[in-house]
Amino acid sequence: MTTEIPPTVGVLLAGGLARRMGGGDKPMRTIGGRTILERVIARLKPQCDGLILNANGEPLRFSAFGLTVVADDVPGYPGPLAGILAALDWTATNRPGIKWVLSAAGDCPFLPRDLVARLHAARAADNAQLAVAASGEQSHPVIGLWRVALRDELRQALVVEDIRKIDRWTARYPLATVTWPMEPLDPFFNANTVEDIAEAERLAALDERSAQ
């Protein structure tokens, strides 16, 4: 990482229930001979000062990936904000010198290689507390940059105020939004359904060609 980018822990959010795929772990599905999670790790590892995985249930199912698995500590599967909170708490305890966490969906295999750099640049330029990614006309609040110091405020919002939507929470703070182009492919394409896996196979070939 360059000196201009603050040290940043990355958390891969894989705590969802994958109902649209009939259950199971979406990041474990295979695209082009590699799991989606392998692809996400390969994109983010060079950009972050360590990666952790947010997932609920038996952590040993992810043991082959060599990542620390951190479960939600807010009951009831309240959604990605709980995974972000778990990552902020883990970072505060285990990496106390790090002030920033990047979150990314564990089912987005084509994440930008400049994700962390651009989010930090926009946050600094806008003097924002948080930064999120977008492509086209769509914001992707699950993919964002979070200040560790806000973890107590996030816990209050989740546990006491029962806030579940990321947009509702981020609206309280100065927020930077960074938009990526959707050509040659949307870098935030996510595999939500069985049909998406087939489309991801096509995009993976396109992505490999564009990187050459």
Rank of each mutant, 00 (worst) to 15 (best):
104 A>E: 06
102 L>E: 13
125 A>W: 09
124 A>N: 15
136 G>H: 04
134 A>S: 11
128 A>N: 02
124 A>V: 15
101 V>M: 06
109 P>M: 05
106 G>Y: 02
121 A>K: 14
110 F>L: 13
122 A>T: 09
128 A>S: 04
125 A>E: 15
98 I>Q: 07
124 A>G: 08
112 P>V: 00
111 L>F: 00
108 C>P: 01
135 S>I: 08
119 L>M: 14
102 L>G: 09
97 G>N: 11
103 S>F: 13
120 H>F: 10
130 L>D: 05
127 N>L: 07
111 L>D: 12
119 L>F: 12
105 A>V: 09
120 H>A: 04
106 G>E: 02
130 L>G: 00
96 P>A: 01
109 P>F: 00
136 G>N: 02
115 L>H: 05
114 D>V: 12
105 A>L: 15
114 D>H: 05
103 S>K: 15
96 P>G: 02
112 P>H: 05
106 G>M: 05
101 V>R: 03
116 V>A: 05
110 F>H: 11
113 R>W: 07
103 S>A: 15
98 I>R: 06
110 F>D: 12
104 A>G: 08
117 A>G: 11
110 F>T: 12
117 A>R: 15
120 H>T: 07
129 Q>Y: 04
121 A>Q: 15
126 D>M: 06
107 D>Y: 07
129 Q>E: 13
135 S>H: 06
123 R>F: 04
108 C>T: 10
114 D>Y: 02
100 W>K: 09
122 A>D: 14
101 V>D: 03
129 Q>K: 00
129 Q>R: 07
123 R>M: 07
108 C>I: 01
100 W>N: 04
96 P>F: 07
124 A>W: 09
132 V>E: 13
101 V>S: 02
115 L>E: 01
134 A>R: 13
106 G>N: 06
115 L>G: 02
119 L>T: 10
102 L>V: 09
129 Q>S: 09
112 P>M: 01
109 P>V: 11
120 H>G: 00
133 A>K: 07
117 A>T: 12
135 S>C: 15
98 I>Y: 04
102 L>T: 08
97 G>L: 10
115 L>K: 08
116 V>H: 07
111 L>N: 11
119 L>E: 14
130 L>R: 03
128 A>F: 00
117 A>L: 13
125 A>M: 11
101 V>F: 03
105 A>I: 06
99 K>I: 02
130 L>N: 05
110 F>N: 11
102 L>F: 13
98 I>P: 07
129 Q>L: 05
111 L>T: 07
113 R>K: 08
125 A>K: 14
125 A>C: 04
114 D>C: 02
134 A>D: 10
110 F>Q: 12
100 W>E: 08
133 A>H: 00
111 L>W: 04
117 A>F: 13
117 A>S: 14
130 L>C: 02
123 R>L: 07
118 R>F: 10
108 C>N: 06
113 R>A: 11
122 A>W: 10
119 L>S: 07
136 G>E: 01
105 A>K: 06
131 A>I: 10
99 K>E: 15
